[in-house]
Amino acid sequence: MGGGFHMTLFLVRRMAGFAATLFVAALVIFLLLDLLPGDPARFILGINATPEAVAALRTQMGLDAPAHERFLAWVGGMLVGDFGLSTTQRLPVAELIAERMAVTLPLSLIAMVVSVVVGLPIGILAAMRRGKATDTALMVLAQTGVAIPNFWFGMLLTLVFAVTLRWLPTGGFIPWDEDAGAAMRGMTLPGLALALPQASILARVMRTALVDVTEQDFIRTARAKGMTKSEAIWRHGVRNALLPVLTILGLQFAFLIAGTIIVENVFYLPGLGRLIFTAISERDLVLVRGATIVLVVVTTATMLVVDLAYAFVDPRLKGRDA
């Protein structure tokens, strides 16, 4: 019996888990939303509408069917890529989500890239200068970076770079196909605001991982062969520290996709987070559940990828579920 069988078994179990997670999540979302107080039709028509008009709109929105029928129709539709029609905007939910993904995905990627480009070198530098003033200074910086509420930091960035220096816009989003340069400029400040805490966390994780690695035997061996500490860290340490860093990156990506709502608000960006927020207040339940399930899929899939990556790198983990 070879490792191949173990690997296949592991994959099958993980995929089954993935599917089960999604199904249960869909059920939870549907039930929760069905419990929400507040009539979507009344919300749209406001305080002077006649009861007949409200009733007419409810019928138009398809709110009259029984719950289990609506649930099956929803899940069945999603399997063939049909997320239904938004009740307030009367447009395909899939289309609305795709529009928002064009903002949220690049924004998350920018924040990831910036946090890697800034965070990892700081972590490496701090590890090389461990215990020295540089290390302390960098770690104080990293502690502060995690501790600043991001809507506050976002506003400070705007005041400096948009209001005072006028280098970048205060926010807003120009569609990519209209002016990619302008779209990019609009994403710069929110990207930085999102990246700050992530970069700080990465720097700390990188430093800790490197410090651990340098205490292990093969680094000592390398140093005994005449390498300097810095050389040893570069040649051997960084590569070995990448595993914990990759895990954090996976977590961060999952978080960024959903967690940008506050920064989207500060920079008036039409992202997925704000879509869900407005859709709930407008009781556009079809849109809310579609967008939420997409987030759940992205988060779960990211975690799956991280787990699989782990299993390939470190086959010992396959025995138990991760």
């Binding site: 749209i44 028509l45 509408a49 006649t50 008009a53 007419a56």
Partner: peptide, 9 residues
């Protein structure tokens, strides 16, 4: 009858 005007009244 099936109007959804908010100020129908």
């Amino acid at each position: 009858e099936d109007s959804v005007n908010a100020q129908k009244a």
